[in-house]
Amino acid sequence: MNKYMLYLNSKRCIGCHGCEIHCKANKDLPVGPILCEISHEPLKSVKGVPKTEFFFRSCYHCEDPYCVPICPTGAMKKREDGIVYIDEDACIGCMACAGACPWNIPQVNPATGKAVKCDYCMDRVDQGLRPACVTKCTTRALKFVTLQVVES
């Protein structure tokens, strides 16, 4: 079962798009791929105040991901803790993963010609740190949540 989840407290999110750049800067990505996304619905008046809420999306790290079995070289992997990641050395950039993904999450990194996607910054997680987007979130709206099984 997945151990982690990224959660956005949309009440605290101010739509500054910081997370998108915190991610790109940490992964040293060129122009092109942006691995997470802040989006919003058009404004609607609620009790006289035009309002909207922000949504955060990155890879969902599916319990049963389509991108993993379709990868011809076995580069797309799922860890014990649920993190779905790309072994860059094995990736050939065929992008079959993106085709298999219902949300087209994996993107081409034009600098390497290989696929790239959110891996919860697993190098940081393995050091006991939080993903870049969470660590630096401007208003501390993003949380890196460790899921627990609730005994009923």
Partner: peptide, 23 residues
């Protein structure tokens, strides 16, 4: 390799511009 808000003052928080300093 990494820029974050001073943890003693900003608890790591930084905006998009702040992280774009590397670029």
């Amino acid at each position: 390799t990494w820029i974050e808000g001073n943890p003693h003052i900003l608890k790591g928080s930084l905006c998009a511009k702040g992280s774009a300093g590397v670029a």
